[in-house]
Structure formats: structure tokens, C-alpha cells
């Protein structure tokens, strides 16, 4: 339990804020430059360890850098400074149904989406029944996904993602998909993850779900780390700051 699953080490990330951006050749030539920008630091020198087997919540107000950090964890963004090291297979779930093709059937999309998320064909073959069973769209699995209801669509996407079966799962606020029954299924799945000693990192605005699920948390404010540690005191500190 005391081992580290993810180590975030002095991570800083800046974005360019463009006052002028010339994305067409004409404007670039006319203005004699491609852009005028200043650096905006979305994350500044953030360091913390995520203990193995924990469910770790990232909390903070809008614009605090939560999502940026999540994307850095998911290796979509690359930090300007510092490093993120993870021990074990990491999978990120920032969106469900990434890369679904509307004209293709649910079955074909499971294979497509699974391979985008890094699963091999054999792995998907093995988990296929689980994925379909979890999503609850058995009946429509050979229909094109454009005929799915939006609920079925996200359920299928979620089922593929949850079956990637990583050691560390990084989740954005995609928990709120589907109806109450499916949400309960998702929560159970996360609990099962936790029981099998896996690490979950999640970002959420809902303090209730963070409180219910997380044992550790980190509070970010305007790109800097305010507090990190056990969930209860961290959430309390964040909520106290909101009251002021």
C-alpha cells in the first residue's frame, strides 16, 4: 500500500495565450509574424505522489489546472518542466467513445475503440462478452452506432474503456453517463478496481462523489498545489476556502 503508483515531480505546464494568431499564410505574411503570445502557466511546480491502490481525487475550482494535469497524466500534453513517472500500465478515460465511426456497427466500433485505447485484438476477443454485457446493448451490437441512443452510445464507450484493465486508471468527469442503474454499475466497477489493488485517479466537481470514492486527494488552485493527502482534510480545506 505504501508504494507509489504515480509520481508527479515538479511539473509545470504553460500554454501560449495568443493575442494574435496567423494561421493562414496570407495573414502570416501580411503581419510578418505567425503569432503574438505570452505564456500562461496552467500548472506551476506541482509535486505529489499517488500511493498504489488508492483512489485519488483531483479537486479545485474551474481553471485550477485539474484537466491540464489530467491530460499530462494521460500523456496527451507534455509538461514543460518536471516529470511524471508511473509504475504499471496506465490508461486514461477522458472521453467515452473516442473514434467511434457512426456508420460502423457496435461490434466493429468495440474493436476500433479498443485498439485506439491500446488493446490488442486478442485482448478484445477475450473481453468482448464482458464489454457487451457491461454496456447492456447486446441486442443492438450489430447495428450501426448512429442508430444508438446517446445513452447506449456512451455506455458502450464506457464499457470498452473500463475493460482496458490497467493498473492505473485516469478518469475525467465521465462518471455521469447513463441512467442511475448504469451509474451504479460504474461505481461498483471502480470499487472492484480498488479492491483488486489498482489505482484510480479521478477529477470531479462533485464533492459528494469524491468523498464517497476517494481516500486521497489533491487540491489545485490556479495551477499550484494547495493541499495533498488524506481525502477528508483536503476536501474540508477546499470547502472552507469556498466559504470565504
Amino acid at each position: 500500500m505504501s508504494d507509489v503508483a504515480v509520481r508527479v515531480d515538479h511539473v509545470s505546464k504553460s500554454f501560449r495565450m495568443y493575442h494574435e494568431r496567423n494561421q493562414t499564410l496570407k495573414s502570416a505574411i501580411m503581419r510578418g509574424r505567425t503569432s503574438v503570445h505570452e505564456d500562461f502557466w496552467a500548472l506551476q511546480d506541482v509535486s505529489f505522489d499517488v500511493p498504489e491502490g488508492s483512489t485519488f481525487g483531483l479537486i479545485g475550482s474551474n481553471g485550477s489546472g485539474k484537466s491540464t494535469l489530467l491530460k499530462c497524466l494521460a500523456k496527451i500534453y507534455h509538461p514543460n518542466k518536471g516529470t511524471i513517472t508511473h509504475y504499471g500500465k496506465l490508461a486514461a478515460m477522458l472521453e467515452v467513445g473516442s473514434g467511434f465511426h457512426h456508420e460502423l456497427s457496435g461490434r466493429e466500433n468495440i474493436y476500433l475503440n479498443g485498439s485506439i485505447l491500446g488493446m490488442s485484438r486478442k485482448e478484445i476477443d477475450r473481453k468482448f462478452d464482458d464489454i457487451v454485457g457491461f454496456s447492456g446493448v447486446e441486442q443492438f451490437i450489430d447495428q450501426p452506432v448512429k442508430n444508438y441512443s446517446s445513452g447506449m452510445y456512451v455506455r458502450l464507450g464506457f464499457s470498452v474503456a473500463i475493460n482496458v484493465d490497467p493498473d492505473i486508471l485516469v478518469v475525467d468527469e465521465v462518471l455521469a453517463v447513463g441512467d442511475a442503474e448504469f451509474q451504479k454499475k460504474c461505481f461498483d466497477k471502480f470499487a472492484e478496481f480498488k479492491r483488486s489493488g489498482k489505482t484510480v485517479i479521478l477529477v470531479s466537481h462533485s464533492m459528494d462523489s469524491v468523498r464517497a470514492m476517494c481516500d486521497h486527494a489533491a487540491w489545485l488552485n490556479k495551477g499550484t498545489l494547495k493541499a495533498v493527502g488524506e481525502a477528508t482534510p483536503t476536501i474540508a480545506a477546499y470547502e472552507a476556502s469556498l466559504d470565504n
Binding site: 473514434g99 465511426h101 456508420e103 460502423l104 466493429e108 474493436y111 476500433l112 485498439s115 485506439i116 490488442s120 485484438r121
Partner: peptide, 18 residues
């Protein structure tokens, strides 16, 4: 390469569908 194959098949199958 499996992803490449799957994305290619997405293009191929999606293109003349219907």
C-alpha cells in the same frame, strides 16, 4: 500496427457504406 489496421478498415468500410 493493429491500430493502423483498424483505422484503415474504418476508412475502407466507412467509405462506400450504404
Amino acid at each position: 500496427r493493429e491500430l493502423l489496421i483498424n483505422l484503415t478498415m474504418r476508412e475502407v468500410k466507412g467509405k462506400y457504406k450504404r
